[in-house]
Amino acid sequence: MAEPDTQPATGPGTPPGTAGRREGIPLGRIAGVPVVLAYSWFVIAAFTVIAYGPVLAQNNPMLGVSAYLVAFAYAVLLLISVLVHELAHALTAKIYGWPTQKIVLNLWGGHTQFESFTASPGRSVLVALAGPAANFVLAGGAWLLLGTNSLGSVAEILTNIFMWANFLIAVFNVLPGLPLDGGRLVESIVWKATGSQAKGTVAAGWGGRVIVVAIAYWFLLRPYLAGDQPDFSLLMITILVGGFLWMGASASIQQGTLRARLPLVSAAGLSTPAVGIPATGTVRDALRLAAAGTKSLVVCGPDGRPQAVVDPGALASVPGAAADTTPVTAISFPLAAGAYIPEWSKGQELIQFLSQLEGRHYAVVDHNGAVTGLLTQDVVLAAITGKGRRNDKRPQGQNR
């Protein structure tokens, strides 16, 4: 349930707290960690009341209509169990200096979003398994409380439900496949053995898919082969949980595959050779540089910083008689503010840097600030995804 998420909760110009309000209801902070109750939680709460209320009323006739209130209390206790689970992740991560962005409680239980951090196999396992461990503790506490025989009927029902809910949450989450916490154990074992976290993530993602197949066999196919019709509620829960796990496992496989390609992503390796041309230059100056074999031309301002890119199509369309009088800025398209990157940037560092920049073109500069290349967003995406560049009939270098 603890999936690292390095994306910011708000974007530029977004008022503080706006994203949180869109996502759900802010419940405040616990140990400095913001907690948000997603609107989707009310769906599972309603389902719990509708599905479990009649069962409680049938098994406990003395409850009457209040059986539905008890069912809602069960949904709240389940919410508390998930919150404790996620807090265990966050507080354990805090020991290692991993900043937690927020905890979100939603339809599927919840998840903890971390900010950027440097993980290791051992620490990743400890942070992941802290959640199920907390639920085992809650289940044990409820079991001890049931042994006192001093509870009323309703309290005993809720305590018994609370015990089994936490036990099942703990057991379910230690299953060896992502997106479950136990998947981090598989990831860390493969990571430690191969030295590649990406390979570990892919292996754990496949483990998650195996778990989905096993669940489908046990709860759907096995009863069907035995001639039994599965309960409708069980059927829906199995489909929903299986679908959620399959999507999470597939996302983990994709994430691991993309992470494995990160070492191939470098500003120097992916950029096309380019040189800088002063903004005071003319089309004639640009033509001389192009004739010398320069593939891309980056227009630099008075301070030497890249500010635009010469459009090859526009450059070729200028009549020869006007080449000496037409400024190079007239045949250029602007770069986004600050869209220049060091040529030594690579991997995750480069991706995070580009995510903070606007536009689709970035000038590449050396230690002295001189332009050495031009990098495009399409080339970076192609390197990460392993897919070819998109077929674009517009002039190469045109800003979009």
Rank of each mutant, 00 (worst) to 15 (best):
78 L>C: 11
41 W>R: 09
291 A>K: 07
101 Q>T: 12
262 L>I: 01
17 G>F: 02
397 G>I: 08
293 G>L: 08
283 V>I: 13
166 N>S: 03
83 L>H: 04
234 L>G: 15
61 P>V: 06
13 G>V: 03
103 I>W: 07
175 L>M: 14
142 A>C: 14
256 G>A: 01
116 S>L: 13
321 A>I: 14
338 G>R: 07
37 L>R: 12
51 A>L: 05
383 A>M: 01
70 V>Q: 08
94 K>E: 15
83 L>Y: 03
122 G>N: 07
340 Y>K: 03
306 P>K: 13
185 L>K: 05
350 L>Q: 03
72 F>H: 02
381 L>K: 05
138 L>M: 12
95 I>S: 06
189 I>F: 11
84 V>Y: 01
5 D>G: 06
260 A>P: 00
380 V>K: 03
368 N>E: 15
47 F>Y: 12
389 R>D: 04
51 A>I: 09
177 G>W: 00
274 A>K: 02
151 L>Y: 11
281 G>H: 12
356 Q>F: 04
325 T>W: 13
331 I>Q: 04
265 V>D: 05
377 Q>I: 10
233 S>H: 14
135 N>M: 02
312 P>L: 10
83 L>A: 09
343 E>L: 07
263 P>Y: 09
346 K>Y: 08
44 I>G: 02
27 L>K: 02
331 I>T: 04
172 F>G: 00
218 W>H: 08
277 I>F: 10
19 A>M: 04
336 A>F: 05
176 P>L: 06
101 Q>P: 01
250 S>H: 03
269 G>A: 13
261 R>C: 04
327 P>I: 15
146 L>K: 03
232 F>C: 05
372 T>S: 09
149 N>W: 15
318 V>T: 11
227 G>Q: 08
13 G>R: 07
13 G>I: 07
249 A>M: 10
20 G>D: 15
21 R>F: 12
312 P>I: 11
307 Q>C: 09
50 I>T: 08
338 G>N: 06
352 Q>G: 04
212 V>H: 01
67 A>F: 09
298 V>W: 10
271 S>D: 10
13 G>S: 08
220 L>N: 05
75 A>D: 13
203 A>P: 02
208 G>F: 00
352 Q>Y: 12
348 Q>V: 05
347 G>R: 04
312 P>H: 13
60 N>I: 14
246 W>L: 13
103 I>H: 06
32 G>T: 07
162 F>C: 00
131 G>V: 07
248 G>S: 02
145 L>F: 12
78 L>S: 09
346 K>P: 03
399 N>V: 12
70 V>M: 10
137 V>P: 02
76 V>T: 00
157 I>P: 03
191 W>E: 02
326 T>E: 10
